[in-house]
């Protein structure tokens, strides 16, 4: 366990967090586009470098964080480097998962404050290959195809229910290796 904590965080926190943030911002602005993050980070297993980079960039003691059981070996590293404690998903603004949770159980904000919702950092097997999904919505000039390996078979149906809540809803950052893709709640996602 202590070996995990010994792994460093960002080598240059101000510079590395800014780069990772711009990757997430570009991903959120152009949903479905593949972005690089955490490629020079040694991530604690079982987290992918992109997952670890997103956590270091966005989470700190001001934010509630939940992590699913499968990520357990990485918890000490996250708690130490993000300076945060873990809570349950129903109370968390950031959720890290290796298995996609039921989106309808996560905080989706209110009509007056739809921003008080969770961001799900979902680690999948691969991005750029796997099941094709058709994305359309703000950020995209025309519909595009996203390939992801590791989403549940009925993901498009679950997403449709989430998208129907707009402006409430969950935003997802998909991570695999040192790549990430964002799915803001404004997106329409269909099986391609």
């Amino acid at each position: 366990m202590s070996a995990t904590i010994d792994l460093p965080g960002f080598a240059d926190p101000a510079r590395d967090a800014q780069r990772a943030f711009r990757a997430v911002l570009a991903a959120m602005a152009e949903p479905g586009s593949l972005r690089m993050a955490g490629d020079d980070l040694i991530a604690p297993a079982p987290l992918a470098p992109a997952t670890a980079a997103v956590l270091l960039t966005l989470v700190d003691g001001d934010m509630s964080l939940a992590m699913d059981a499968a990520t357990y070996p990485a918890h000490p590293w996250v708690i130490f480097h993000c300076g945060t404690t873990l809570t349950e998903p129903a109370k968390a603004r950031f959720i890290v998962a290796l298995d996609c949770p039921d989106l309808s159980t996560l905080p989706s904000g209110s009509d007056e404050a739809p921003e008080e919702s969770s961001t799900l950092i979902l680690q999948v097997r691969a991005l750029g290959s796997g099941t094709p999904y058709c994305l359309s919505g703000p950020g995209l000039r025309s519909p595009m195809i996203l390939r992801a390996d590791g989403l549940p078979a009925d993901f498009a149906a679950h997403w449709a229910a989430n998208h129907a809540l707009f402006p409430r809803g969950i935003d997802i950052i998909l991570c695999a290796g040192a790549t990430l893709v964002a799915l803001p709640r404004s997106m329409t996602v269909e099986n391609a």
């Binding site: 997430v24 911002l25 959120m28 739809p114 709640r185």
Partner: peptide, 10 residues
């Protein structure tokens, strides 16, 4: 940064 990401999503 967290606020900016929410802003882009909504």
């Amino acid at each position: 940064r967290r606020a900016i990401l929410k802003a882009v999503a909504i």
